[in-house]
Structure formats: structure tokens, C-alpha cells
Design a protein around this nucleic acid. Structure first.
Ligand SMILES: [Mn+2]
Ligand SMILES: [Mn+2]
Ligand SMILES: [Zn+2]
Ligand SMILES: [Zn+2]
Lengths: 155, 155
DNA sequence: GGTATTATTGCGACACATTTGCAATAAGGA
DNA sequence: TCCTTATTGCAAATGTGTCGCAATAATACC
């Protein structure tokens, strides 16, 4: 009778199906990703998680994220700003890409068919098998561009 | 009488034009990038450079690469394999993108107009100003795919 | 060419995200 | 409930890139 799949059970079955165990830590991290909407790094997830479990260790966050990624519930990405930090988000949305504003830090998500098209061409022309694609843009959003223009004018 | 521009003088003038000095270290790093063809990380450049100057420090490599990037002679990229390592290459080729094989490690360069098209759409639709784009693909090349298929067959 | 100015270097220490070894803990199947 | 072993917490380790600073050396100027 339930209209939508219950992600909690989905988590459980995916874990068990891969010989893993369902732990409070994993449920917690998964729920944080589900609730918080968007784009968190490991440390931020850790901060949020510690509000529920003071004891939870950052290493566990990393290991949990790796598991959630492996069973396909979570996507790990790199954003433009600094490519040295891993960003995580729930793997539920349709294929999309990201732009990061260097001024205000906001991330804009967008869809486009062009990237998939590039992949298709790679497969055709080189016979490659793609397993992962990283695409990200950075620059300045409208507001931040305006702000910069204004400050230039003041000078 | 010389048919092609001499990059050495180009380096010198670009450095001086930006109030910088031409040092043996900078020439060395630039020449390594020119000679070695392709896609080196800082440590690799350092190893190659130390064959000419035992004393050269890794920090100098990083600082030099930052300078060469700033004056537009070198591009810094991130490749798929591990996205935390900065990769450098001469900024002479036409706009191109990269695929990394997870099997043999080879990097395949390719051109496509689709990425620029995505940028154009972003500018139009959101009024964004782009300053940087990171695009990279990973997967398996034909040879490595075949090899994997064979090993599967053996099992 | 000699000299003064100051950009650049070498070096060690630092920063920071992520990983790893290991003993203690706790899922979950029997 | 008990047993096996996956998982955790903790501390230490990695790995890449950065920084401060005193010593060095490239350049502008004479
Ligand atoms: Mn997203
Ligand atoms: Mn290239
Ligand atoms: Zn902005
Ligand atoms: Zn290959």
C-alpha cells in the first residue's frame, strides 16, 4: 500500500545483499544525507552526526560513505573550488552537473544531454568503457558578477 | 629567420612582463614540460628536474608551476584516477579533454565541442561567468576491457 | 663591471583530508 | 543465547600541497 519505496528497507537489503551489516552509524549517515538535501563533505556530515552520537568517529564516516557509494545510494563528487575535498550527495536525482560560484560559494545544479553525448562518442570512437565521469564548472553567479562590477566602478 | 617562435624567449618575456625573474629552476621546469610531452605531476617533474639539479626543492617546483600557470604557459588539471593530485601539461594544444584507463593507466586525449556548448548554455540560462571547467572521464580502454573479459572467461 | 634592491630559493615545519592497523564491540545467523 | 566476524573507535600514518624565513641570486642602475 505504500506509495513510495522506503529507503530504510532499501538500505537494509542493499547492505545485507552485499554481505554487510546494518549499523546505527550507517543508518545515521544515510539519514543525514537524505534529510540535509545536498552536497555535504565528510566533516560536515560528521558534525551533524555527532549531534546524535557523540562517539561517532570521523573514520567511520569515511568508511560508511565508501560503503554507501559502493551500493549505489550515494554519489561522490569533486567540486571546482578545491578539488581536494570529496563531496557527497544522495544518488537519487536525475543525472546532473554542478557549477560553483567562487564569490558566494553557492552550487548550482543543472542538467544537460551534452555530457552523455560525449560519453557516447568516446565509446563509439575509441571503444572505451566508461565507469565514471567528473564534470564541474566554476566562475561567478549573476549576483557576484554584478557586485564585482560595482566595486570596479568605485575604484 | 627562425620559422617558429622560440619558447625560451617567450618564457623570458612573459616572466619579465609580469615583474618576475628568469631563473634556471623555471627554465628547467618549463623545458621538462616541453620535452616530456605530457601530463606530469609535481613529484614526477621534481624527479626529472633533479637529474639536472640535485639541489632543486619540491616546493620550488610547486611555486614554479603556479607561476607558469599564471602566465598561461601551463595548464593544471585533475585526472580521474585520483582527483587529489594536480597534473600539469603545456598549454599549447587546442582545447581538449581526457580519459584515464583504470587498467593500464594510459591517458587518452580527445576533442569535442559539446563541453563548450554546455558552458554557453550556462551563460545564457543562468547568466553565469565561467572561469574554469573540469571534465574528465575514466573507465577501461579496449585492450584492458578485452583482458578483463578473457580473465572472466577463464574463471 | 660593480652594487643595491628585492624576487626567488632551499629547507623545515605545517596544514588538511583521507586512510590504515588494531584491539574492542556488536550485528545477525544458527 | 552463542558464535563468528564485520564494524567501530582511536591513534597514528599518508600524501599532496603550502608557508615562513633566512640565505641566495637575478636584474636594474650606475
Ligand atoms: Mn548535486
Ligand atoms: Mn592533455
Ligand atoms: Zn555567487
Ligand atoms: Zn587500459
Amino acid at each position: 500500500m505504500s506509495q513510495e519505496p522506503i529507503p530504510f528497507n532499501q538500505l537494509k537489503s542493499l547492505l545485507h545483499a552485499s554481505g554487510r551489516r546494518m549499523t546505527p552509524q550507517r543508518v545515521l549517515v544515510f539519514n543525514i544525507l537524505r534529510g540535509s538535501g545536498n552536497h555535504l563533505d565528510a566533516k560536515r556530515i560528521w558534525q551533524l552526526a555527532r549531534e546524535h552520537d557523540r562517539r561517532l568517529n570521523l573514520a567511520t564516516i569515511y568508511r560508511t560513505l565508501a560503503v554507501l557509494k559502493e551500493i549505489g545510494l550515494v554519489d561522490q563528487r569533486y567540486f571546482a573550488r578545491d578539488h581536494k575535498r570529496e563531496i557527497y550527495e544522495l544518488a537519487q536525482k536525475p543525472e546532473h552537473y554542478h557549477f560553483t560560484c567562487l564569490g558566494c560559494g553557492q552550487v548550482i545544479e543543472f542538467e544537460t544531454a551534452h555530457i552523455l553525448q560525449v560519453g557516447r562518442e568516446l565509446v563509439e570512437q575509441y571503444g572505451l568503457r566508461l565507469t565514471n565521469t567528473c564534470v564541474c564548472f566554476e566562475g561567478f553567479c549573476v549576483e557576484c558578477t554584478d557586485e564585482i562590477v560595482m566595486m570596479e566602478g568605485v575604484k
